[in-house]
C-alpha cells in the first residue's frame, strides 16, 4: 500500500512509467535521503558562508602581500620563493589593491589600471 503510494508520487515527479513498486520505493527513499543530505549540508554551511569566505579572503590578502611585498619596497625574506608566483597571481592583483584601498596600482614598473 505505502510502497504503491510512494511509487505513484515518485512516478509523478519523475515522469517514470516503470511499475515495479519496490524498485520505485527504493528510488523514492534514496531521492528523499539525498534531499535531506543536501539540506543538512546547506543548513551547516549557509549561516556562516559569509564569515568563512571573508576569513579565507583575509588570508589570501595577506598572501598577496607576501608575494608582492618586495615590489613595493618591503623587504621579504621569502622573495626568492614568491617571485615565481607573481605571474600566477597577477590576475587577482587589481582586485586586491582596490580592496586594500589603493585606487590605482601602487607599483611603478607595471600598471594594471
Amino acid at each position: 500500500m505505502v510502497a504503491a503510494t510512494i511509487g505513484t508520487m515518485v512516478r509523478r515527479v519523475n515522469g517514470d512509467s516503470s511499475t515495479n513498486g519496490v524498485d520505485l520505493l527504493r528510488r523514492g527513499i534514496r531521492a528523499r535521503l539525498a534531499r535531506v543530505r543536501t539540506l543538512l549540508g546547506e543548513f551547516y554551511t549557509a549561516p556562516y558562508r559569509g564569515a568563512v569566505a571573508r576569513a579565507r579572503r583575509d588570508e589570501d590578502d595577506l598572501f598577496m602581500l607576501f608575494v608582492f611585498a618586495e615590489l613595493m619596497g618591503v623587504p621579504n625574506p621569502a622573495a626568492y620563493y614568491t617571485l615565481e608566483l607573481q605571474p600566477l597571481l597577477l590576475e587577482r592583483f587589481h582586485e586586491w589593491h582596490t580592496r586594500m584601498g589603493l585606487e590605482h596600482s601602487p607599483l611603478d614598473h607595471f600598471r594594471c589600471c
Binding site: 539540506l39 546547506e42 543548513f43 549557509a46 549561516p47 558562508r49 559569509g50 569566505a53 571573508r54 579572503r57
Partner: peptide
C-alpha cells in the same frame, strides 16, 4: 559570500 539565495526551510531553521 554574503548574498546567496538559500532554501526557505534552511533559512527558517537558521
Amino acid at each position: 559570500i554574503d548574498y546567496v539565495p538559500a532554501n526557505r526551510y534552511v533559512l527558517f531553521g537558521h
